[in-house]
Structure formats: structure tokens, C-alpha cells
Computed example of a mutant assay.
Amino acid sequence: MKKFFLFPLFAAFFSFGSAAFAQTVDTNSPDGMVKTVTGQVIDAIRADKSIQSGDISQITRLVNEKILPYMDFRRTTQLAMGRNWRAATPDQQTQIIEQFKMLLIRTYSGALAQVRDQQIQYKPFRANPDDTDVVVRSIVMNNGQPIELDYRLYKTPQGWRVYDINVLGAWLIQAYQQQFNEQIQQHGIDGLVQFLTQRNQQLAASKSS
């Protein structure tokens, strides 16, 4: 799996920008939604010392409350699994979604503690009124280094939802597709569930040691 640790997933996803804590999130505007939630998350991080210290329970709470409502993680997981998704039972799908989500949170939780005053520049948003799949593009300045950070969203009856993220040219879904496919080919759907579960256990153990 391609690794992109310069801007880990959940730090990259909605953790940079200006203060916007009191703003209502307009899910009918893809670029507006990204900008607003960005501000809300960074404000929450700055106000919570436990998140800054890397408390996994508080980081999970933050992700669940302020990120996942605007992300279709089921779609993310489904696309990462590709055609194997249909071979999984509903119970297996649920387990994979939850374990994958926790894997990403645990893997990249340390990045949230490092969020401070990085500056983000949004590129001009271009989309047609009838588009249902769009990309919000941005550049994050981290210690003077520009880092490409893009969000892919699709339109739902409930508004726009993020389902993929691009960091330095590496899209999240593409980065995990090969690893998921290899695990399923070698060990089946249950093997993928077991792999994700064991990886989470390993990360939890290393965090507590």
C-alpha cells in the first residue's frame, strides 16, 4: 500500500483553515461545506487538550461528530473493495466499514495533535450546476512546503458528501484497493476482516505501551 504520512488522512481531512465554529454547514455547496467543516474541526482541536495529547477516544469522538456526518465512508469502503464488495455479506460489510474506519483513525491520530497554524489556499472551484461528482482542490502550506490536498464529493439527497481524498497525488481509495484485493484473494472476505481487526489491535497495543 502506498503510504502518505506527510499529511495523514484525518488531519488532512477537514483540519485546516480559518475559524468557522459557529457557522452552519451548507451541504448544498461542496466547496463551502469543505471550508466550513475545516474551520469547525480545527477550532475543536485547539479547544481540546486531550485531542492535542493524542487521546484516541476523544479523537474518535471528534471524527464521529464533526467529520463522518459529511463523509460517505460506506461508499469509500465499497470503492476500496471494488467488485469484492458484492461478495461480502451485510454483516461482513458492516465489520469492514467499522474496522477500516478505526484503522484510519488509529493510524493517523497523531497528526491531529500536530494541527496548529498551517495555511490553506483553495483553488477556484469549477463545476457545472448539474454535476453530481466534483473535486474541491487546495494547497496546504506546511513549513513553507506546498502540499496538494483535494476532496472528491458526490451529491446525495441529503447534500454533498466527501468520499475520497487526494494527498500529494495519492487518492485514498486507490491506495487501499490493492491491499484489500490481495487480502481477499489470499484469505477471503473474512480474512480481510481479520486483517483489519488484528491491525487495529496492534495499533492499540503499541499506543498503550
Rank of each mutant, 00 (worst) to 15 (best):
Ser18Lys: 12
Leu104Phe: 07
Ala47Gln: 13
Tyr122Gly: 05
Ala113Trp: 04
Asp43Arg: 10
Asp91Tyr: 11
Leu103Phe: 14
Gly17Trp: 01
Asp164Gly: 09
Met71Trp: 14
Thr107Cys: 00
Asn28Arg: 11
Phe125Val: 05
Thr36Cys: 11
Thr94Tyr: 06
Ser18Phe: 00
Val37Tyr: 04
Ala11Asn: 03
Tyr163Ser: 13
Asp72Ala: 04
Met33Asp: 10
Thr156Asp: 03
Ile45Glu: 03
Leu103Trp: 06
Asp48Met: 06
Arg86Asp: 13
Thr24Trp: 00
Arg61Lys: 13
Val140Glu: 02
Asp43Cys: 03
Ser53Ala: 15
Arg126Leu: 15
Ile139Tyr: 01
Gln183Tyr: 00
Phe5Leu: 08
Pro157Thr: 01
Gln145Val: 08
Gln114His: 06
Leu172Thr: 14
Gln177Tyr: 04
Gly169Leu: 07
Ala205Ser: 12
Leu149Phe: 01
Thr77Leu: 11
Trp171Tyr: 11
Arg106Lys: 08
Asp91Trp: 05
Ile97Tyr: 03
Ala22Val: 03
Leu62Thr: 03
Trp85Val: 02
Gln92Ala: 15
Gly110Val: 05
Ile96Cys: 12
Ala175Val: 11
Gln198Thr: 06
Gln23Trp: 07
Gln174Met: 07
Lys66His: 11
Ala47Trp: 01
Ala12His: 02
Gln121Ala: 10
Pro69Thr: 05
Asp131Cys: 10
Ile42Gly: 00
Gln194Pro: 02
Gln119Pro: 00
Gln198Gly: 06
Ala11Gly: 15
Gln23Gly: 00
Phe21His: 14
Tyr163Lys: 05
Asn166Met: 06
Gln179His: 14
Trp171His: 05
Met71Pro: 00
Leu112Ile: 03
Ser208Ile: 13
Trp85Met: 01
Ile189His: 08
Val193Gly: 02
Tyr176Glu: 00
Ile189Leu: 02
Leu104Asn: 09
Ala80Thr: 07
Ala44Trp: 02
Gln99Lys: 15
Asp190Phe: 06
Gly82Leu: 03
Gln93Glu: 15
Asp48Glu: 09
Asn142Ser: 09
Ser50Phe: 11
Gln93Gly: 12
Leu168Thr: 07
Met33Ala: 02
Gln179Lys: 14
Leu196Ile: 03
Gln118Phe: 07
Pro30Trp: 06
Ser18Glu: 15
Leu149Glu: 03
Asp130Lys: 12
Thr77Val: 15
Leu203Met: 15
